[in-house]
Design a protein around this nucleic acid. Sequence first.
DNA 1: AGACACATACATGCAGCCTGTACGTACAGG
DNA 2: CCTGTACGTACAGGCTGCATGTATGTGTCT
Lengths: 192, 192
Amino acid sequence: MTAMSLKVEQGEATRAALVDAAIALFTDKGFAETSTTEIVRRAGVTRGALYHHFADKEKLFRAAHEAIEKDIFQRARTVAETAEGGAVERLKAGADAFLDSCLEPAVRRILLIEGPLVLGWQRSLDFDNPYCARRLLRASVAELRPDEAPEPLAHLLFGALWQAGLVVAAAPERRVEMADALHRMIDNLFDG
Amino acid sequence: MTAMSLKVEQGEATRAALVDAAIALFTDKGFAETSTTEIVRRAGVTRGALYHHFADKEKLFRAAHEAIEKDIFQRARTVAETAEGGAVERLKAGADAFLDSCLEPAVRRILLIEGPLVLGWQRSLDFDNPYCARRLLRASVAELRPDEAPEPLAHLLFGALWQAGLVVAAAPERRVEMADALHRMIDNLFDG
DNA sequence: AGACACATACATGCAGCCTGTACGTACAGG
DNA sequence: CCTGTACGTACAGGCTGCATGTATGTGTCT
């Protein structure tokens, strides 16, 4: 660990405690139904600490969201990169990893459901976000269909994948059938 | 018109005024950022009237959402039913009609963005809702692929369609390219 | 047809909660 | 010593939902 001064170290600790408490409570009750008082009580600090580290409640949600997004993105990318086979198989593997992540309650609630609304729905549409699954899909599409613009199909695939994640989050027992349908869809779109 | 007694008629009028005002304000500012005071001011009544007709603010949103959902659903179904050609062409026509509807700001904000969260995200996943686009897609899939369970693919198609609607709502100039991509996807999935 | 009881459609004031901010304090580091 | 950072605390404003009051249609009984 980087040696920090005592003050800064403590600050990072309370900030992390706030993010952790926020993730837990936002996962259970959602953004609007969770008060800042509950969050700071769970984190063991006061509202003053919260508003010292975050400009407002939404910024705290953003921090929680980014932590989860980064985690799930890196997992999916790692799985996709280390998968056996060609681009189609890597795409399938990445999709499977994403569906697995959707089984976690925090991913379901914070990333799939509340994220787009709280952070602004436009954010989820562009490819600028470094940890956006759309980027991975666009790369796959560009590789598999080099003759057409990748964005539109990447959007459609993203929507299908996102929806599959929602279904799996709501009914984990459907994970295999949704994965099968996804694989068939990918085969139909990119078959050789 | 059905002849109503004066009292009931007046009640229906203020209720409609409330729903209209709610649609306009929710479209502009969203659910959380719109106060009931603003809504009743725009509707020309008081908060007492609102809470007489609707149990809470969310029920008012539900009424606004249902009005829009019913409208867009019936339009899409009509277009799909009267389209020339086979099941594939009817599916494409319905998808096009849906994308057209997404150009309207009220559809974008209330149906696409805020609806799933405010009304509960599970609601958007099942096929029980009589005005759910998922039903139409499931019927198409069942007709085009009679040998497999239609639900999983219907979910994926719904996700792709929904996402296309979001993209079109954010950037209307992309309407044709998204429709083209959707058509190609449908062809790849159901081609003969 | 008229009176009366009742239900409906509102209006208004209040209580409680929540967010964001202004201000005070304690302490580490130069 | 003194400055900036990391908090704690008190307060103001807004918002929701409810409780209460009121006026006006509506059915009914005679």
